[in-house]
Nucleic acid binder design. Structure first.
Lengths: 266, 266
DNA sequence: TTTCGTAGCACAACAGCGTTATGGAACGCC
DNA sequence: GGCGTTCCATAACGCTGTTGTGCTACGAAA
């Protein structure tokens, strides 16, 4: 009574291939056969490791959330929490644009093809908001926002930035109301609407622009792998991947995020 | 030199069937064969009338925009333009929830399945914003909003409400930050952030809630066809459909919105 | 070390998909 | 009536996700 174990590198490689295909060639390239062929195994491996193609896509969505989390936690806090909040918003949007196809899988709805996330996946994604909630608490503690529900403030931040990012990805925002222009005005307006004073909000948002530019600049010139971040290395936390150790890409520790993938349960 | 004409009723019936399948059974049910079978014709009819399945879906997206337009133009203006604006926001969200699958096709991105809208489709959709722009101008004229770019204000309105609706449809908004709660707070916050005074904004939003409730109530009990609005009757504007004349469903007059559907151009 | 049960996974097949080649039938003009 | 043109039904093509079948590699027990 000791069966053969599945190859963990195959699992990671499948996610890696799938996410790469999605990024490079878009949704149409995401087929079981294509992923299996490019990974160098048969389509059965997908069903052994994930249960179905849908579950592979779900895993890609989780990879997308992990990337977002990486962005949002890459920010050092300062004594201007509102500026920190604005940088978080910029990082969120930057992640959406950089990983556009992943973002659409995360938040694009099933939108044909019948693909669906589970409640667990969404819960996993919502956890990313914890960073924003914490920042909102700091804004309140600093007296910039009135005492209130930090989680509500974080959600207002989220829905607003997502609304712009979503329509931007859908190519709905064109001249003269571009995503950039809308984002800047919304950023200030949002801080004001949740209670910050107008001048202070504008100042913090301006500060955030510089800090964000530095962050993105460092991303593009610093760590070599940051430009084309490797995927799926977090797939099996207990097995140290051979390609690890170049960037703090894994080790996210998102609560009980290491879900099971038992193909039996549909 | 006088070829056989395509049957216009077949074209409308195909759209009708496709939109119904999308509403009743979701994206998975949207297949060429299924639509053709339920309509009572062969799959070739789809290619004769639309060119491809993708073009049929695009037509459904346009139907979605037409429904949105119908909602937004159903509103009578009052001497409280900010309340009018808030009602527009409520109607927008109501339409997104009522026609969820249509809304996802319109704004859900391709998100797998490789389906894509064209620039023309999006332009058609953006035209719906004209109602909101006009309302923003009235807010400025009434002195509620400071002089500024009404189009920008309308876009801020749009991205904000869309952000909530999108995440709500994706089931990302759960207790304690539900879509309802977020929507109400964002509505007031939005009016404040674009320049309205806090108390006046809250008052107008409160007024809008009542007016919206009456509108939705009238929709469900008034005109018989409003409950399950018939689709695709606007498909061929020049041919007066036999079932017309019950509700102001057509006659949108959206600029040069009557596009050609020549299958030749890919 | 040999044995053996379990499970990974390759191969091939299935139903369904979007799309297209083929050809008969219907239509509007000469 | 003849004719040119186009609609559209049938059947086929290559693709998809998924699943049966069976070989084989593995790991613990003997």
């Amino acid at each position: 009574m000791s069966p053969r174990r599945p190859d963990p590198t195959t699992r990671a490689a499948l996610i890696e291939t799938a996410a790469r295909l999605l990024s490079e060639e878009g949704p149409r390239a995401l087929s079981t056969r294509r992923v299996a062929t490019e990974t160098g195994c048969s389509t059965m491996a997908v069903y052994t490791h994930f249960g179905s193609m849908n579950d592979l896509v779900r895993e890609i969505a989780r990879e997308g959330f992990a990337r977002l989390e990486t962005y949002l936690t890459s920010l050092d806090t300062t004594d201007d929490p509102v500026a920190d909040m604005a940088v978080l918003g910029r990082l969120y949007r930057h992640n959406a644009m950089t990983n556009a196809h992943l973002y659409e899988v995360m938040f694009g709805g099933s939108s044909l093809s019948g693909f669906q996330l589970t409640d667990e996946d969404r819960q996993y994604g919502r956890y990313t908001l914890a960073n924003v909630v914490h920042c909102a608490q700091r804004c309140i503690a600093a007296g910039r926002f009135p005492a209130g529900d930090a989680e509500l403030v974080a959600h207002q931040m989220w829905t607003t930035v997502h609304g712009i990012a979503s329509l931007e990805l859908g190519r709905y925002l064109v001249e003269p109301c571009t995503g950039d222009r809308l984002f800047e005005s919304q950023l200030v307006g949002l801080m004001v609407s949740v209670g910050d004073e107008g001048g202070a909000a504008a100042g913090s948002v301006e500060v955030s622009a510089k800090r964000f530019a530095e962050l993105v600049g460092a991303e593009n010139s610093g760590c070599a792998s940051a430009r084309a971040p490797s995927i799926a290395l977090r797939a099996r936390p207990q097995s140290p991947p051979a390609t690890a150790g170049r960037c703090p890409q894994d080790g996210l520790d998102l609560a009980d995020a290491s879900a099971k993938f038992s193909p039996s349960g549909d």
